[in-house]
Amino acid sequence: MAPTTADGAVATADGRADGTSLWPLPYRVAWRRRETADVVTVALEPVGAAAAPYRAGQFHMLTAFGVGEVAISVSGTPGTPGPIEHTIRDVGAVSHALGHAPVGALLGLRGPFGTDWGVDDLADRDVLVIAGGIGLAPLRGAIHQLSQRRGTGSLTVLVGARDPDQLVFTADMEQWRARGATVLCTVDAAAPGWRGEVGIVTTLLTRLALAPERTVALLCGPEVMMRFAAADLVDLGLHPDRIRVSLERNMQCGAGICGHCQLGPLLLCRDGPVLPYGGTVAALLGQQER
């Protein structure tokens, strides 16, 4: 019996995957770019059938065959022709294998899964992006799109990192500035010669002339950072529903059927990763899960 659903959407009769079922599509490493000592951007192109188009903020499940599969947000810009970029930090066996796959190697790709940043609704909004560490990767495509939008809204990007060597996409930052965005970087500590800021990313908020009633904030980074940044933004007058956060739990299936990414009532691979901070999420992040 072929594992198809009633409408045949999962797989073709001979079991070929369309990329959203449990079977990955083969993708080839087109090029790699080292971003920092432990972060690499890997660009993937389909060998045969391509996955459905992604939106900024969505993620793919990437497989290093024989090693495993992890959720990686797309760091490229939707609609851009050519390979799909994923920026991967080396934190475990699978991300290590993905980041070290040589040009020409085959990786598996499923997706895209999850919710996106919703940049299409933001033409005339002031957008404040707050990213911590590798959290800038899932935001990169959205920032590219926002920096090129036709509208009246301003774009401000605040980036926090451990030290200046850990900052990713510094070349992109110049491009965003050239297009009129304000981009501020802050690190936890730095050697003299660093001309950016030193301090936690939330302290940069006090230096902005924020118009809360017309601002939407997009947050991605360590959960603690997002929690404090969101709380500060609410103090500054932003409505919690206009703060969007990208949340992470253990994601394995991408389809909302394996249970691992539960956060209370949410299945983050299905209901997230991008969610409004207001209501449920603010309460959930305030809870002690441990």
Binding site: L22, T63, F65, G66, V67, G68, E69, R249, N250, Q252, C253, I257, C258, G259, H260, E289
Partner: peptide
């Protein structure tokens, strides 16, 4: 709940296995 595990043999052939998982398992979350 289920987990996905990838395994390989010496020939380089690999397979992905799905197994029941439990939210009581420490590795689950």
């Amino acid at each position: 709940c289920s987990a996905l595990d990838d395994v390989s043999d010496l020939s380089g052939a690999t397979e992905r296995r799905r197994r029941w998982d439990s939210c009581f398992d420490l590795g689950y979350s």
